[in-house]
Structure formats: C-alpha cells, structure tokens
C-alpha cells in the first residue's frame, strides 16, 4: 500500500536526519563511576583501595543491592515503586533460617524463602494492579507489615544457619575462583538485561510506565504487567534475603533494612526515570556499584558511618541534578 502523492510539509519541530546524537547524560553514571574510581585510586591507593581483596569487597557488598536493583528497574520503569523490598529480604532470611533449622531440608528452606516473596508480591501486586491502590502506599504498609512479622516470629533474635550447603550456595562460598555472590549477581543481571531489552514483556513494561492508557489501547494488559513487576520485585527481594542469610550464616529481621533506598538511588542514578517509561538495567547495576564504591572509599579515608550517610545523600542529589534533562 502506498500513497498516491507526496507530503511536502516538513514537521513542526526541527528534524535531525540521523538518529539524535548520543546524550552524555544517558551515560553519566558510567562516566561518574570511572571518575570516582580513578579519584580513589589516586588518593587512596596507599590505603589499600586498589588491592584485589578490597575491590572484591566492594563487589561483595554491592552484589545484593545490584540483584534487587535489577528488579527495581522493572518496577520503576513501569512507573511503580516498591518500598517493601528491604523488609521482605529480612523476612525471607528469617523464614528460611527457621525452616532450615526445623526441617533440616535445604530445598524446603529455599522454597519457604521464595514463598515469602511470592506471597508478599501477590498481595502487593493484587492491591496495586487490581484494587488500584497506589504502590507507594501499599508497599509502604508492607514495609511495616513484613518487618513486623520478621521481628515477631524471630523474637528479635538472630537465627543461626548451620546448613553448610545453603551458606555455600547463598553467598558464603565460591564456585571455583568466583564468589557465589558475584555469580548470583551476574546471573540475575544477565536475565534482567535480556528481559528488559529483548522481550515483549520488557517493552510492554516501558509502554505501561510511559503511558498506561495508550498501552491499554495498544492491547497491553497493563494490570497484568503491573502485577508481574511487583511479584518479580518481591521474589527477587526474597532471594536477596537468602543471600544475606547465606553470607551472614543466620536469618535476622535487620538484614536488608533500608535497602529500598539504596536500590531506588541505584536505579535513578543509573538513568531510569522515576516517572516510568525508561529502564536501564545495566545503569542500575553501575549505580549500585557507584554507591558501594563511594562507601568503600569513605571507609578507607577514615570517615565513620554517619559521615558516609551524609556524603551518600549529597552525592545522590548532585548526581540526579546533573543528569536531569531540561
């Protein structure tokens, strides 16, 4: 089918012939990461910043946040938010530890942990997608509920995990030369990148976040997409909780506390718009590494935790202000 004549009118806005030039802001997190890394390498080189064990340390500390940030990218790309992930991680670590000590069965323990994520995710997703309550409110409430349940059933006590296989797989051990934590992170990130960029589901998430009405009118099942991203977010948070449990060889309600903020910071630093419609999984991972890098550098520089938090906040504001468009 072709048209019988030529349209001569140019469009209102100036039209570049070629695709628009690359915007440095889209890659600011990569630039920032390299700059800060070099800065620390020069100034903190004598304090052991560049040693292999320190770099591995950064990766280890960042890995769990990076895992959660992958799911967080999907959630934020769909123009939703999940504030409950930190609590879900804590609850999952407690439930897994309790199940392991009660049954002694690795598989049952893992399933219990994942089940926690699935249950919370279904509740979150159902209330947001089908009852149409804003995700901010639902997941804020769930932050309290999941955290409270974790405290209640554990009696505020850490629950030791003696199952060596579990701790080896989830965070303590190594697969050959590679720490298992790193392997988890790489696998989750790889899956996230493919889902976001290469699948119909990923594109539909972006459309849902960009304009839910237009997405609906294009045949996208917007409610299902919203439900799905919130379930994924919770399940991934539950896995993150098991990684904490494995690495620290115990389940405790405090594991993951406050992680929702680190994850949101990582995702936004990575270039995903808080308003939905864009999603950069790799950017989020680098965002997570960036935050971890800064914490590490500040520790080596001799700053204490309170000062770290202050500087982290300042850096996030500066970074977001610099990369904001228009």
């Amino acid at each position: 089918m072709t048209l019988q004549h030529e349209t001569t009118a140019p469009t209102d806005a100036p039209q570049p012939r070629r695709p628009p030039r690359l915007d440095w802001r889209d890659h600011a997190i990569y630039i920032g990461f390299v700059v800060v890394f070099l800065l620390f390498a020069v100034t903190l080189g004598d304090d052991g910043f560049l040693t292999g064990s320190n770099l591995l340390n950064i990766v280890r500390q960042t890995a769990v946040i990076a895992v959660m940030a992958v799911a967080g990218t999907l959630v934020i790309a769909a123009a939703q938010i999940d504030l409950s992930i930190g609590s879900v991680a804590g609850l999952s670590s407690v439930v897994t530890a309790m199940t392991l000590s009660a049954t002694g069965n690795l598989l049952v323990g893992v399933l219990a942990g994942v089940g926690v994520g699935l249950l919370v995710g279904v509740i979150n997703g159902g209330l947001v997608a089908y009852a149409r309550i804003p995700s901010f409110l639902v997941t804020l409430a769930m932050l309290g509920i999941a955290g409270g349940v974790a405290q209640w059933i554990s009696g505020f006590q850490p629950i030791p995990i003696l199952d060596r296989t579990f701790t080896m797989i989830f965070g303590s051990g190594d697969f050959g030369p590679i720490p298992s934590l790193l392997l988890w992170a790489v696998v989750v990130v790889a899956i996230g990148v493919v889902v976001m960029n290469k699948t119909a589901f990923g594109r539909q998430i972006l459309a849902t976040g960009g304009n839910p009405v237009a997405a609906t009118f294009s045949g996208v099942r917007v409610q299902r997409i919203t439900f799905a991203v919130l379930v994924i977010s919770s399940v991934v948070a539950a896995i993150a909780g098991m990684l904490y449990a494995g690495r620290l060889q115990s389940g405790r309600f405090q594991w993951g506390t406050g992680d929702e903020l680190s994850v949101i910071a990582a995702v936004v630093l990575g270039g995903t718009s808080l308003f939905g419609g864009t999603g950069r999984v790799l950017g989020s991972v680098v965002g997570a590494l960036f935050v971890g890098l800064i914490n590490n550098g500040l520790i080596l520089a001799g700053l204490d935790v309170s000062q770290q938090i202050i500087i982290q906040g300042v850096i996030i504001i500066i970074a977001v202000a610099l990369t904001r468009k228009r």
């Binding site: 594109r203 539909q204 972006l206 459309a207 960009g210 304009n211 237009a214 997405a215 009118f217 294009s218 045949g219 996208v220 419609g277 864009t278």
Partner: peptide
C-alpha cells in the same frame, strides 16, 4: 494513541 516520549518504532510495534 501514543507513548509520546517513546520512539516512532517503539510505538508502531507495541
């Protein structure tokens, strides 16, 4: 009809 910030291609193929 459209997700305005998305590209022509993204919209067309949705």
């Amino acid at each position: 009809g459209l997700v305005l910030e998305h590209t022509i291609g993204q919209n067309m193929l949705l």
